[in-house]
Design a protein around this nucleic acid. Structure first.
Length: 435
RNA sequence: GUGAGCGUAGCUCAGCGGUAGAGCAUCGGACUGUGGCUCCGAGGGUCGUGGGUUCAAAUCCCAUCGCUCACCCCA
């Protein structure tokens, strides 16, 4: 009965171990710093929300909502809730965070704040997909959203600029920016109707997925990557030719805004993105250093979402970037290894003899108060062994505290890189460690 | 959900019908107050799991689970 079970992490989730965790921290700090310079502020959001929030914003018909969410009943039928409903309401682990941001915007009446509301978030998202390179069931995103009364393309362009700046900070040289406009409530319905009509004519040449999408979401057919459908997709009417004047002008201005920022881009008429709430601008940044899942970041405008969720009218644009994928690319480049490595161990305190231990403990505490990373062994060991361990732990200095040193009131501080050693009073040790 | 490849020590892998191995890592010793080098030694495995074939299976067969990559979709 005491059969031992060997636990392992659940499929699609993973541990981020040192030293990788140092790189993650570095990256998150770089992202925060970048976004803060564009005057974004952090919003901390819940990890789970009312399932209905995602269904109404992301779209009930999307893959994300229809089959990829981790959903459970909050408050199982207990005494309190059993009377009313018999069970708690459905909540889901967030598959993305834009819905939460808009919910929070509405809930806290942020439309009354002066100017544009500029928020960023970071943290884990959850989607139950089959894992592969660059895709996990618990993955990490950093996202930014601008909400307010203006939908000027300069806002869109500035968000993209911000992303490009972050890429540069991460020394990511090769990337591709794809942009498109998918119209708005004025022009998209007519285009979708036209597209559906054209698709019906070639229906029997399409795969099962695309055939189904003719009814559920014709735009997504454009996104098909099936080789045998490419010729058909290329022949379909393009949204760019069917935008209303406002959308066409908006998209033209976006391109001008990118040009004046010297940001290279490619217009991709097939970039429709999977989530229902997008309008007008859509964009994506891809990397050649990833596998099939090559999108580093993606985003777009979602001007109608606030009202769809019962809030005030709001013009919004946002993006999310995949941390896992950024990390992957940064590591592949290898150019930031030094900058992103965790701080090394500053000092390893070697104490010899029980009589010296109290002095060693006092020294460790003092150095730590000075901000040094310090290791002091719990058990005494031979000097040779202790120095060997210090070396293997990557310590910069070893500090020998034995009877002789305590008696003399000066510790032997040895720099392991070159073997230079000095006798220093306790108050002088920190200075030597800094130098 | 579908397909392909791969599962042997903590890690990287060899062995591919005949007593489970190497390198690295870990621990100890040579070396009692001065690390890195060297040498010696030790621990660590139900060969993913279950069944089958065989005198004999890590090895061949079947199933199953897991991992990886890809499809799909997305960050």
């Amino acid at each position: 009965m005491t059969e031992k079970k060997k636990f392992h992490s659940v499929r699609g989730v993973r541990d981020i171990l040192p030293p990788d965790s140092s790189l993650w921290n570095w990256f998150e700090q770089a992202a925060r710093d970048t976004l803060e310079t564009y005057n974004f502020r952090e919003i901390r959001l819940p990890i789970f929300e009312d399932t209905e929030l995602f269904a109404r914003s992301v779209g009930a018909e999307t893959d994300i909502v229809s089959k990829e969410m981790y959903t459970f009943q909050d408050q199982p039928a207990d005494l309190e809730s059993a009377n009313e409903m018999g069970r708690g309401k459905a909540v889901s682990l967030r598959p993305e965070a834009t819905a939460s941001v808009v919910r929070a915007y509405i809930e806290h009446g942020m439309q009354t704040l002066p100017g544009l509301v500029k928020l960023y978030y970071l943290g884990p998202m959850f989607r139950r997909e089959r894992p592969q390179k660059g895709r996990y069931r618990q993955f990490y995103q950093i996202g930014a959203e601008v909400l307010g009364q203006s939908d000027h393309p300069a806002i869109d362009a500035e968000m993209i600029e911000m992303l490009i700046v972050l890429l540069g900070r991460c020394k990511i040289e090769s990337w591709t920016l794809l942009v498109n406009s998918i119209g708005d409530a004025n022009c998209r319905p007519a285009y979708v109707a036209l597209l559906r009509e054209e698709l019906r004519k070639v229906k029997n040449q399409l795969g099962a997925d695309s055939q189904r999408r003719i009814d559920t979401n014709p735009l997504r057919v454009l996104d098909s990557k099936l080789a045998e459908e490419q010729a058909i997709v290329a022949s379909l009417p393009k949204i760019a030719d069917h935008l209303c004047d406002d959308c066409r002008n908006h998209f033209a201005e976006l391109r001008r805004q990118l040009d004046l920022r010297s940001i290279p881009y490619t217009v991709d008429p097939r970039l429709v993105r999977g989530l229902d709430y997008y309008t007008r601008t859509t964009f994506e940044i891809t990397s050649p250093h990833l596998g099939a899942q090559n999108a580093l970041a993606g985003g777009g405008r979602y001007d109608g979402l606030s009202e769809m969720l019962g809030g005030p009218p709001a013009k919004c644009i946002g993006f999310a970037l995949g941390e896992d994928r950024f990390i992957e690319v940064i590591q592949a480049a290898g150019s930031l290894d030094r900058a992103t490595a965790g701080r090394p161990l500053d000092a390893f305190i070697v104490w010899l003899g029980a009589a010296a231990y109290p002095a060693a403990v006092r020294l460790a505490r003092r150095l730590r108060q000075e901000g040094f990373r310090v290791e002091i062994p719990a058990e005494e060991s031979k000097l040779k062994k202790a120095l060997s361990l210090a070396e293997r732990l990557g310590a910069r200095f070893a500090i020998i505290v034995g009877d002789q040193e305590v008696a003399a009131g000066a510790y032997a501080v040895k720099r392991l890189a070159d073997g230079e050693q000095r006798k220093l009073a306790e108050s002088d040790v920190a200075g030597f460690l800094r130098g």
